[in-house]
Write a protein that binds this DNA or RNA. Structure first.
Lengths: 192, 192
DNA sequence: TGAGCCATGTAAACGGTTACATGATTCC
DNA sequence: GGAATCATGTAACCGTTTACATGGCTCA
């Protein structure tokens, strides 16, 4: 079983999907997986070196004019490691850190109107995020027409997620405003 | 404006809510904020020292028999810093890292049945998480009766969140099974 | 000619987890 | 007597972000 660092996972996948350089990988992740799986240059370039030393990828000097560019592709061992990771169902990383929820958790320590103001800006922020996600839907739809459908599926996840946030904070807002106890159970009732 | 590290934020809040020792803080976060704001001993103890040096908290030697215990409480400066942080609406930390969603994003690289198996275990995992959250509801309800209602609100967030995940993955599962395109938009329609 | 993009890389700092080390107390 | 819990703390390691540094290419 080949051990892959978090950044190695997204690198191998992106190379398989068509990215070739470190710059490429950064650019593509920036408008696709950024929301749930980021990668910075400080990780990407050293990781590409390590993956090549381990024989999972191969790089070739591929200058663009005078720009020294290094283009990578998966080796057979790299393909195998990628497939192994993609079908591994043992345990996986899920990290969630939400400062507004922490502030809400401590809501008993501040005034009612202060909680309400926090809730309101949080809802507004998620509305903005939902809009941003919807703004890149067209690009994902075109990609889907060319056969890559799952990036669109992941984007739809993001849209649904942001919409749920807007809903949840919106309802909490209403309850706080009306003076009802803010502790009703929410039931997710998604429809397609 | 007093600068607080991420761990300092949860420490100040927990001290205000009644926790007294580093051990206390760890124990309380473990069954309350763990899901969205963790803290480990390796962070807590050094941070308590730093906060005391900065005059935001004060510790007193408070042995329990022969056990050397140090009990902390907020100073006026600490109370002010906590309030300032709780009402700051400028910018906040939101981090989301989801390996199953990354695998889904790369779904075009593996077989249809392999994607389906991933989706299924993800849904099952979230069902389990939702159950776990519901399992601590009673404790949160008691706490709410004593006047602390927002920890319960945060827990209800977690339950709604997990339920939404179950819904979303469940619907994707159905579509993958039926051969429909897995790209319909989900609309969150929460009801109280 | 200048802005913006293409392209690669490193160093420092930061934050976090894990593992290790120690030992008393409580309760069955 | 032994297990679980109370209690504190450090060292090593890991992964990530940010800032810095460099410089060519493209197009208006």
């Amino acid at each position: 079983m080949v051990k892959l660092t978090p950044t190695a996972r997204v690198i191998l996948g992106m190379l398989k999907l068509g990215a070739r350089t470190g710059y490429d990988i950064k650019r593509v992740t920036e408008f696709s997986t950024r929301f749930f799986w980021g990668a910075s240059y400080g990780q990407i370039y050293p990781e590409l070196r390590k993956l090549e030393r381990r024989g999972l990828i191969e790089g070739e000097h591929d200058p663009r004019g005078a720009i020294a560019r290094r283009a990578y592709h998966l080796t057979d061992a790299g393909e195998a490691a990628l497939h192994e990771w993609l079908t591994d169902r043992e345990n996986w990383i899920f990290e969630y850190r939400d400062e507004q929820l922490l502030r809400l958790f401590f809501g008993d320590l501040i005034a009612h109107e202060e909680v309400l103001a926090n809730v309101q800006v949080t809802r507004e922020q998620w509305e903005q995020t939902a809009d941003e996600f919807r703004g890149i839907e067209t690009a994902a739809l075109e990609e889907a027409d060319e056969g890559q459908i799952f990036p669109l599926t992941a984007l739809r996840f993001g849209i649904g997620f942001a919409d749920w946030m807007v809903e949840w904070y919106g309802q909490l807002e209403e309850r706080l405003r009306s003076g009802e106890p803010p502790t009703q159970v929410e039931k997710a009732q998604s429809s397609s």
